[in-house]
């Protein structure tokens, strides 16, 4: 389980080849159709870059559910335990003060802080978890020198198939793409180590 999660963290992995066949789309519906057809070729390493979330894309791409909620849950629980332990140690062990005759360890008074620390831990872990799983920060990308690919942050959609994919077959992919409304089919990036 742990190894499985580690294998999903991009920046712990060895550098892969970043060379791939890319093309541009003007409409999300055309992109969805092409991804569906490419998936039927058995390709597993398809990447898609869109300027906004395209509904249904996660289904055609067969993307697994994000692992981030688990990180949030675990961090939240840790935060809860930390808050209980911290308040118990401070109020009942280290510096005992009688407040209004209440017990030194009084649950109701501690609840707001338990809640706050739980939320704080969960929120921070979610933020960090999201960065880790998205491979951020990322300082280099095969896309940064390609003007068309940069349009995928504005008004176009980029589809990208990595050459390292075991099922990669250029002629077949070109065949599928040629029947679609896509343009600017070209190679992007360089072979890595």
């Amino acid at each position: 389980m742990f190894k499985k999660i580690l294998s999903k963290i991009p920046f712990l992995q060895k550098k892969k080849t970043y060379k791939g066949l890319a093309c541009q789309f003007g409409e999300p519906t055309h992109l969805l159709e092409s991804v569906k057809d490419l998936k039927e070729l058995g390709l597993s390493n398809i990447e898609v870059y869109t300027p906004y979330p395209v509904h249904g894309l996660e289904k055609v791409l067969d993307l697994p559910r994000s692992q981030v909620p688990w990180i949030s849950l675990i961090a939240g629980l840790i935060g809860f335990v930390v808050a209980v332990a911290m308040q118990w140690w401070m109020s009942a062990v280290s510096y005992k003060i009688n407040v209004g005759g209440k017990p030194l360890f009084s649950g109701p008074a501690f609840v707001p802080i338990m809640f706050e620390v739980t939320v704080l831990f969960a929120a921070l872990a979610t933020f960090v978890g999201l960065w880790v799983f998205c491979g951020l920060p990322k300082f280099a990308s095969p896309f940064e020198n390609d003007e068309r690919a940069l349009r995928s942050t504005n008004d176009e959609f980029t589809l990208y198939v990595c050459t390292s994919d075991p099922q990669f077959d250029e002629s077949k992919i070109r065949n599928v793409l040629s029947s679609k409304k896509c343009f600017n089919i070209r190679y992007l990036g360089e072979e890595g180590e």
Partner: peptide, 12 residues
Amino acid sequence: AFSQYLLIWYGN
């Protein structure tokens, strides 16, 4: 529910 309880418990 807890807000109601906490204030009453604290005020005593």
